[in-house]
């Protein structure tokens, strides 16, 4: 096993963390020019504005890390390099949650006026319903994705995800016709994902804790996940308890995805592409991927989000960050695909 030894892993992790930290600070130093001017300012602003930027870059870092982690876990779990955190219906689940919130939530909100705890909850707007929707969808996919003796089966799981996504999409369209007309732009914006300076610190902290839990758990699975990429019988014969491994990977991926939805909504492409890029650079060993992919995803999302944050004046307003992740990531992905013919 020339490719992986502990010291190499440590070096990769250290360099990765340092690079991520460096880019974090650089993102803090970038900002839009004066209002109405097509410029980008560099350098650290006064405290009040720095705090706004800090919130946003933090949120991007947490969401990115979580997406990169969930991507690796799900691609490994489903043995499918095209899996991403949203293939399992998690995205459509969260959108349905938000839709239900918009349709029925306002009546609820009025009946709870006066209770400070509930008001705080509603103040955080779409996050809680999005999270509930994601959890419900994930749970359904999990129930449908089990076969024989309760073990998760990759193919069944993907199919269940596609079905739940389709049902979710239909529900969104159904609810869309029930929504008061003014709320429709909200849902469109929600579906693209959005990172805001206004993200509540409580939410970022909660997402951060879930992320740390998921990441710690996932790091312990790396070696077993390598072996789980063989057929079930082979993996079994090599000493892998597949049912518990899949259950853990699924739960940890769901936790990480929930963390990213909490702070940024459903942002596509990051979770799909970062594991791929890392596999292309460092090879398919999950023990490395579980370190490199989340860090790369954090960098990717921080940079993309900083770009849209600083360039609103050039594009008649801020672009959705998903546009940049797809536009930059897509061609790079194709380049890698071309360089290496097979992506098993």
């Amino acid at each position: 096993m020339k490719a992986v030894n502990p010291s190499r892993l440590t070096v990769i992790a250290l360099v990765g963390v340092l690079l991520t930290a460096l880019i974090f600070v650089m993102c803090l130093a970038c900002g839009p020019g004066a209002p109405g001017q097509r410029t980008i300012s560099f350098g650290f602003p006064e405290m009040a504005i720095l705090q706004l930027r800090l919130t946003r870059v933090e949120a991007a870092a947490v969401a990115g890390t979580a997406l990169g982690l969930a991507g690796v876990l799900l691609q490994g779990l489903l043995r499918n390099p095209l899996a991403d955190p949203f293939v399992l219906g998690i995205s459509s689940g969260s959108t349905v949650g938000v839709m239900i919130w918009i349709v029925f939530g306002q009546a609820l909100e009025q009946s709870f006026t006066g209770s400070p705890w509930m008001e705080n909850l509603f103040n955080n707007g779409q996050t809680i319903p999005a999270l509930i929707g994601a959890v419900v969808a994930t749970w359904l996919v999990f129930l449908l994705g089990r076969r024989r003796g309760g073990m998760l089966d990759p193919m069944t799981l993907i199919l269940s995800g596609v079905i739940i996504s389709t049902i979710g999409g239909a529900l969104v369209m159904l609810l869309n016709n029930l929504v008061p007309y003014g709320a429709r732009t909200d849902i469109l914006n929600y579906m693209f994902g959005y990172i805001s300076e206004g993200t509540s610190h409580t939410l970022i902290l909660a997402a951060c804790i879930s992320l740390v839990l998921a990441w710690t758990g996932a790091l312990a699975l790396g070696g077993a996940m390598n072996i789980a990429s063989f057929s079930d019988a082979e993996a079994h014969s090599l000493g892998i308890e597949l049912s518990s491994l899949r259950l853990s990977a699924f739960a940890l991926a769901a936790l990480a995805t929930a963390a990213s939805i909490t702070v940024a909504g459903p942002i596509g492409f990051v979770g799909l592409i970062c594991p791929h890029v890392c596999r292309g650079i460092f090879g398919p060993d999950h023990r490395q991927l579980l370190i490199t992919s989340p860090l790369l995803a954090a960098i990717f999302l921080m940079v993309s989000d900083t770009f849209v944050r600083c360039t609103g004046a050039y594009f008649n307003g801020e672009l959705p960050v998903g546009v940049i992740t797809a536009l930059c990531g897509g061609p790079f992905f194709l380049y890698l695909l071309n360089r290496r013919r097979t992506w098993m």
Binding site: M1, K2, A3, R79, N80, P81, G223, A224, N226, I227, S229, F230, S231, A233, E234, H236, S237, L238, G239, I240, R279, G283, P284, D285, T342, W343, M344
Partner: peptide, 26 residues
Amino acid sequence: LSYVPQSPQVSFAYSVQEIVAMGLWA
């Protein structure tokens, strides 16, 4: 017990060395 299947499946592009090394897992 060790096992050799009719047609081995590997979902990601591991090197031969890495795959053989996975026999050591247990």
